[in-house]
Amino acid sequence: MTIVRDILDLIKVRILFSALLTTVLGYFLAVDSASFDVLFLFWLCLGLGFIFSSAAAINHVMEVGTDALMDRTQNRPLVKKRISLLSFWIGVLVLLLFGTAILYIKFNLMVLVLSLFILIFYDVVYTPLKKITVLNTWIGAFPGAMPVLCGWFSVRDDLDFLIIVIFSIYYWWQLPHFFAIAWMNKESYLNAGLKMMSVDDKGGHKTAFHLCLSTFIFLVFLTLPFFFNYVGYIYFIPLMGLSILFCYYIFLFCIHKTVLASKKILFCSILYPPLILLFIVLDSLV
């Protein structure tokens, strides 16, 4: 079972799951109920899943030296050499070829271009920037929010206000999420030479400020689908309840600047992607 765990680690299965959830949401918003096609959605998620998995795996090989210096990543399969580089690159190539083939054959060119752009931006732009500038968090959030566009453009060839808002929701959601992670792991990031805001933020004041600012902008975008009548109270009430809890944990962090408070922020933030999808779907059924 070790090899299975290593493969799931290499493809960053939790991040992959979140990316595919946003893809499903993009598709759901783009297609009318009469045209909803489960098989179409399956092939879309499969093709994108292969591409995103290869992007995550490439990130592992690019950061193997950095991972060896951090407690939370020093047991990764490439660091411990449990998987050979030959096997690794064969696997990446297979994932990339199958994903590209599926998206090219079954979908429009925009979906394939977007998926490859996400891979390139994530591995070639964002990953090196982590050792260059603290702006890497803001820059890396762009490819992180783009899977929803893949779902949208699988059936649409235009942009409208709703999908721009949904993209913005996922962009701004990532910032407090990753600020919390950065505070939890600030010592590891310092040891690895990564340029994270938390590393030089001894008192936590910069982290607290950016947590508050990014959360405020995130919550503004989160409410827009309701105020522009795209969704109703089934979406609005539970997500506002979650947001009150989210803001409370951020308030605790601003007061105490503790790792425990950042863990609570992280836990709460993880709930947003599946719940946003769930409540938009439920709202549409009423």
Score class of each variant (00 low, 15 high):
V4D: 08
D6I: 09
L8P: 11
I11R: 02
I11A: 03
I15D: 02
I15H: 08
S18W: 10
A19K: 04
T22S: 07
T22V: 04
V24N: 03
G26V: 01
G26T: 03
Y27H: 06
A34E: 13
S35C: 07
F36I: 07
D37L: 08
F40A: 08
C45F: 08
L46A: 13
G47M: 05
I51V: 11
F52H: 06
S53D: 11
A55P: 06
I58K: 09
N59G: 13
V61H: 13
M62R: 13
E63Q: 15
E63L: 11
G65N: 15
A68T: 11
L69W: 10
L69F: 13
R72Y: 11
R72T: 08
Q74E: 15
Q74C: 15
N75M: 15
V79H: 09
K81W: 14
I83L: 11
S84E: 08
L85V: 11
S87D: 15
S87G: 15
L93F: 13
L97S: 14
T100N: 12
A101D: 10
L103F: 08
I105M: 12
N108E: 06
L109I: 14
L109C: 12
M110K: 14
V111C: 11
L114H: 03
L114T: 00
S115Y: 07
S115H: 09
F117T: 13
F121E: 00
Y126M: 03
P128K: 10
K131T: 11
I132G: 12
I132F: 11
I139R: 08
G140D: 02
P143F: 09
G144P: 03
A145Q: 01
G151D: 04
W152T: 03
F161C: 03
L162M: 04
L162S: 01
I163P: 00
I163G: 00
I164L: 14
V165G: 01
I166A: 05
F167L: 12
F178M: 07
A180I: 08
N185E: 10
E187G: 10
S188L: 04
Y189K: 02
Y189N: 01
N191I: 10
A192N: 02
A192D: 07
L194G: 02
M196S: 09
M197A: 05
V199F: 05
D200G: 14
G203Q: 11
T207L: 04
F209W: 14
L211Y: 09
L213T: 03
F218Q: 01
P225C: 00
P225K: 01
F227C: 05
V231H: 02
I234E: 03
I237N: 07
S243N: 07
I244L: 12
C247W: 15
L252N: 12
I255Q: 13
H256N: 12
T258W: 04
L260F: 15
I265E: 06
I265V: 15
F267C: 05
L271K: 00
Y272R: 05
Y272T: 04
P273H: 01
L275K: 00
V281S: 05
L285P: 06
L285W: 12
L285G: 08
V286D: 10
